[in-house]
């Protein structure tokens, strides 16, 4: 599973695929205010990204790849 769901935090690892979006959405619906750790994520299908954006989740850690983080920050970073 590329997403590890913990108590109140989800850990994204490797490549999160389109099939994972459904589960992510369900989980977030149950856990408002959940936090996401992207540090081990290499790529995520935009279906997942949409879910994260819509849920306005808090990101606790960004990916190692700076360019990838750049993309994600533009979509997920809380407005200053």
């Amino acid at each position: 599973m590329p997403i590890e769901f913990r108590k109140n935090q989800a850990l994204f690892t490797e490549v999160v695929s389109v099939e994972d979006a459904e589960g992510l959405l369900e989980w977030l619906q149950k856990k408002p205010g959940a936090r996401i750790d992207l540090s081990a994520c290499m790529h995520l299908h935009p279906a997942n990204l949409q879910v994260l954006m819509a849920a306005s989740v808090a990101i606790v850690a960004w990916p190692a790849d700076a360019a990838f983080t750049g993309w994600l920050r533009s979509a997920l970073a809380a407005p200053p």
Partner: peptide, 20 residues
Amino acid sequence: GGIVARAPWPPLAAMDAYRC
């Protein structure tokens, strides 16, 4: 590169993750 949503997001309950 950056990503923006085309429209405000619906409530999570009404969300369709598979419509880009």
